[in-house]
Design a protein around this nucleic acid. Structure first.
Lengths: 203, 203
DNA sequence: ATAATGAATAATTTCTTGATTGTTCATTAT
DNA sequence: ATAATGAACAATCAAGAAATTATTCATTAT
């Protein structure tokens, strides 16, 4: 059961603990796994974990950070494509949705972790949103640069875009519609954001 | 304690019950008020309430419907203004936010009711959203008519607008920011929706 | 007939208590 | 010194009993 980890630097031991915790959280959920179990998986005492992590919630927070960072890097790829900014914005919204939905439907346990963190470690979520906003800001600036967009305040626009895509980011909503319905909603929102409502001077 | 209600039609008695229930729900919350208490306020037995309502949840559902209908009529007023469609759309988003925020901060008990209904009577919420979508559809069509907007599918656009304003409709989010912050977010979203990201042919 | 009730039942909630678990710390090993 | 532990303590959780409450229905009033 023990994870093989020959090193014994603080980093590698922390890593061992995180890996063990993740395995437990995935399989049994955050609430049901005990510090003693995590410790046993690492061949150490529960008390010793506290030399590496402040408490259980902090272990959860670090894992959640990784999980969310993974999402961000997936979205970064989507955004880094050589497509038009418009296409990439829609891909961002759809990717956002896909990630949330798949985590909700395929890893309900991990989702339990994310919800606990959202409740008790607001800072982690805030930071995640900040990073996402940076991503979108970059995308909008990109669109400005190549003439697709003409947005005066890209940061402001990025914030609005994130706010508008809240439904696609929060697992809580996922039970309300089918994936297909959400997909159609995301496309509609992308369309709305891209074109706006204003009439254009017709040529 | 009894509510004065001289009539004895089914409607008036139902009304008496609803009024008593609302007073209890406002003061003590949905969960804490008992059918016996509501009945006592109406000078009748708990059993008799079941001659007028299927069960406690149905009383809650009817009150929630009224509460939500009140919101809709407030928003209808906002939309019925002789302002431009753009101004009215922003007013709609801000009104939406204001209603949610005030109910959350000033009537936390009633909010408890709304949450119970959202969980166990999805139909009531769905209907509310449908009506709201109609409102926005009208507004968009209005904008189309007077040349402010040029939206091919107003219903579709209205759906997207509602989806994009989810944060302002769900009490659950209200604790995340101050009212001022939300106000600024709503304005940003309104701006985004109205103008879109696309570059316009500059005159 | 219709309206209303009290008593009976079923479902929920609350409370209590024991066990489990997170966390600390004095002590032991390396 | 640093790393690790077992024992102790406090907080939380779980199970089941007790009580409360929603709901039904046979019966009584109007």
């Amino acid at each position: 059961m023990a994870l093989s980890e020959p090193d014994s630097t603080v980093e590698s031991i922390s890593e061992t603990i995180l890996t063990a915790a993740l395995r437990r959280f995935e399989q049994y959920g955050y609430g049901k796994t005990t510090m003693a179990e995590i410790a046993a998986d690492c061949d150490m005492s529960a008390a010793n974990i506290y030399r590496y992590f402040e408490n259980k919630l902090e272990i959860g927070a670090q894992l959640a950070r990784r999980c969310l960072a993974q999402e961000c890097s997936a979205l970064t790829e989507v955004i880094g494509t050589p497509e038009s900014a418009a296409v990439r914005l829609e891909a961002f919204l759809l990717g956002n949705l896909r990630y949330t939905y798949e985590r909700w439907s395929e890893q309900p346990r991990i989702n339990e972790l994310v919800e606990a963190i959202a409740r008790e470690r607001t800072d982690v979520v805030q930071e995640h949103l900040r990073i996402k906003q940076e991503l979108v800001t970059k995308l909008v600036e990109d669109g400005n640069r190549n003439g697709e967009f003409s947005v005066a305040d890209p940061k402001r626009a990025a914030e609005a875009i994130l706010v508008a895509s809240t439904v696609f980011e929060v697992p809580l909503f996922m039970h309300m519609h089918s994936y297909e319905k959400f997909e159609s909603m995301a496309k509609n929102v992308a369309d709305l954001i891209l074109r706006g409502l204003n009439a254009r001077p017709s040529p």
